[in-house]
């Protein structure tokens, strides 16, 4: 097990320390899931739009909560805290990359959240979606997995860059609100983009949010053609490259600020 594996493991272990909050978390995700399911059953049942079935909607809700848990950890808050107390400088004199240290930590935390927040709704989800559900074909499944991975990394890069801004504006946790709002509105985490008017749909294509969660779900449900899926996969990839470039430039500036100006 390499160093990043170890960091992952420790982050996971740390989440498991607080048993009570773990059980409450499981309970919370179950309740949230059933509320959403009842709500959407009522809405989809009442609507005239027949392109979205109950089964689709359930799968959407299950995947939504699963991928959300995988992208949930708030690195911005962690980075902000370590910038403010100055401990971030200790990372640059350890034989470890700050970014990958952070990434491994986030993945560890999210893996734990996935187990406690997403796995519990899987069973009732499968049961509810059973009627009319078809498992995605190998091609779609592969596209789904690839776009999920890209989505997770996009989310990480977004929150990481926001966290690095703490070097200049000290308190940046509120910027995470903008990200969350962007996710909710343009990422389709509250209302799937299927139900959006054309105009908003078009705008969302030019923002990174829909590639984090909505496009993977679309692929899982065969809602788009393979070509369309490949296009959004590529768009997600381009966003990822852009964000990595941005994050590197910001990091170099932050490093300068930390080592030349003393933070």
């Amino acid at each position: 097990m390499g160093k990043y594996g170890c960091i992952f493991g420790k982050a996971f272990k740390m989440q498991a320390v607080y048993r009570v909050s773990m059980y409450l978390g499981i309970l919370k995700s179950l309740i949230a899931f059933f509320i959403q399911v009842s709500l959407w059953y009522a809405l989809v049942g009442a609507g005239a739009d027949n392109s979205v079935s109950f089964s689709d909607m359930t799968v959407y809700l299950v995947l939504n909560s699963a991928i959300l848990t995988l992208t949930q950890a708030n690195v911005a808050a962690d980075i902000e805290a370590s910038v403010i107390d100055g401990s971030v400088s200790m990372h640059i004199i350890r034989p470890v990359s700050f970014k990958f240290y952070t990434l491994a930590t986030v993945l560890g935390q999210n893996a734990f959240r996935f187990l406690t927040g997403a796995v519990p709704v899987l069973l009732p989800g499968i049961f509810l979606a059973w009627n009319g559900f078809t498992f995605p074909s190998p091609v779609y499944l592969a596209l789904f997995l690839a776009s999920t991975l890209i989505g997770m990394l996009i989310m990480f890069e977004l929150t990481y860059v926001v966290g690095l801004l703490a070097f200049w504006i000290q308190r940046c946790w509120f910027l995470k609100w903008y990200l969350d709002a962007g996710m909710a509105f343009f990422g389709g985490t509250v209302v799937p983009l299927w139900f959006y008017p054309q105009g908003l749909q078009a705008v969302s294509r030019f923002l990174p949010f829909r590639y984090i969660l909505f496009e993977p779900v679309n692929l899982f449900l065969h809602k788009v053609s393979v070509q369309e899926g490949a296009v959004s996969l590529a768009a997600g990839g381009i966003w990822l490259v852009l964000l990595v470039w941005l994050e590197r430039s910001v990091w170099l500036l932050a490093l300068d600020k930390m080592t030349v100006n003393g933070g």
Binding site: M1, G2, K3, G5, C6, I7, K10, K13, M14, V17, Y18, R94, P95, V96
Partner: peptide, 15 residues
């Protein structure tokens, strides 16, 4: 949140 021994193990890997 973890025992000292966990940080020991982390440093074994880090270095």
């Amino acid at each position: 949140d973890l025992p000292v021994s966990d940080t020991f193990e982390l440093y074994e890997k880090l270095y």
